[in-house]
Amino acid sequence: MRSEPAPRPDGNGRRARRSPLRRLAVVLLVLLALWLPPWWTLFGSGTHWPFPVSAVGTVLFAGWLVSFPFLMVAGHGPRRSDRAARVADTGLGVIWVLFTWSVLGGLVNLVAAGLDLGGTGRARAVAGVVAGLSAGLLAWGHHEAMRVPRVRRLDVHLPRLGAGLDGTRVVVLADTHYGPIDRAAWSARVTEAVNALDPDVVVHAGDIADGTPAQRREQSAPLGKVRARLAKVYVTGNHEYSSEAQGWLDRMAELGWEALHNRHVLVERGGDSLVLAGVDDVTAESSGLTGHRANLLGALAGADRQHPVLLVAHQPKFVPQAAAAGIDLQISGHTHGGQIWPFNFLVRLDQPVVHGLSRHGERTRLYTSRGTGFWGPPFRVFAPSEITLLTLRAGDRKSV
């Protein structure tokens, strides 16, 4: 009898062959978990709709459940079909909103049943409220995702900032995520909004696109018209590392931006200096691209540490390293502010901050942008997009 080789850690044994099946099982369980509460709230749980209504609803839900994995692979896999991605991403957003409010509706239904309230029409009433509320939130959320972001204005006090740099206007873009939905016109309007703020420095904190520079050339082109007195700087986000990170660094340089690929530039005004440094995303090293990793020492090499430092790092979770190095201000994105409530609570499990200005250690401030665009589902629910105007102020104050 021939013996089978023992599973090996290098992935050549049976353990590795079972791994894709485990991953598939996890994906299917997650999809079922997302699918079941909406279906149960809308068409089960004692609603007793006429048979045609229940049948059509069940078919629609089943169609999503079966087709979604294939659409995601077609849209975000090697083929990168924008049409498939649009359908898959929109369906994911719809099911997430339905899931959230179905769970809340189900809890209300259980409490009402326990108190013997609502009678036989209770389940239908809950289903109607969940469907109506979800539809309203999705319509509003789509409008919020597709509009030009509102400007959020904030003063940031940096004790080491020289008086000559007091009032420096830093405009922050992040997570534009040019993608399957053509937003070239939106991108042009964002550029107009940025230029209207009369910035000294413009920062793009990464996740510029989902797709290659060639695919998203028209959408990224308006960034070439962004104006800044002192500098326009850009760092990679995690999404660049699935769509030609080096190509995006080259594309941004072509558009007139300083690609802060673990490097810094010095800007001066009124006789005072500010170091603008940037690091690759924390996922860069695992991408396998030579020379790509979050290298703060490299970014600061040769910088006069008597000058204040503004660091651009895509993910807020880089802030412990920034604080340990005495960085004055870190600017990040990545979180989207959660994008679709209540996903912000899940984001908080991975990141120290979801949005806004925070203090870390004695010196370091962190500003986390909610992002300018959106990823995947074209919805923003209770997490508005933003273009941020940070006005740097010399001196300290008690708050962040």
Rank of each mutant, 00 (worst) to 15 (best):
R23Q: 08
R23H: 02
R23S: 07
L24S: 11
L24D: 15
L24E: 07
L24W: 15
L24Q: 13
L24Y: 08
V26W: 12
V26T: 15
V27M: 15
V27C: 09
V27N: 09
V27Q: 12
L29R: 06
L29Y: 05
V30S: 08
L31V: 00
L31Q: 08
L31Y: 06
L31C: 06
L32I: 01
L32H: 00
A33G: 05
A33V: 04
A33K: 00
L34V: 06
W35Y: 15
L36Q: 11
W39P: 03
W40R: 07
W40K: 02
W40Q: 06
W40V: 02
T41P: 00
T41K: 00
T41Q: 14
L42M: 09
L42D: 10
L42N: 10
G44H: 15
G44R: 15
G44P: 08
S45P: 03
G46E: 10
T47N: 04
H48M: 05
W49I: 02
W49Q: 05
P50W: 14
P50R: 12
F51G: 03
F51I: 07
V53Y: 05
S54E: 07
S54R: 08
S54W: 04
A55S: 02
V56A: 14
V56T: 13
V56E: 07
V56K: 07
G57H: 13
G57N: 12
T58R: 03
T58S: 10
T58V: 00
V59E: 04
V59L: 11
L60H: 04
A62Q: 11
A62L: 15
L65I: 02
V66I: 14
V66C: 12
V66M: 11
V66Y: 08
S67W: 13
F68R: 01
P69C: 13
P69M: 10
P69T: 14
F70W: 12
F70A: 14
F70R: 06
F70Q: 06
L71N: 01
L71Y: 03
L71Q: 01
L71F: 03
M72G: 07
M72E: 08
M72W: 01
V73N: 10
V73F: 13
A74C: 09
A74P: 01
A74Y: 13
A74D: 15
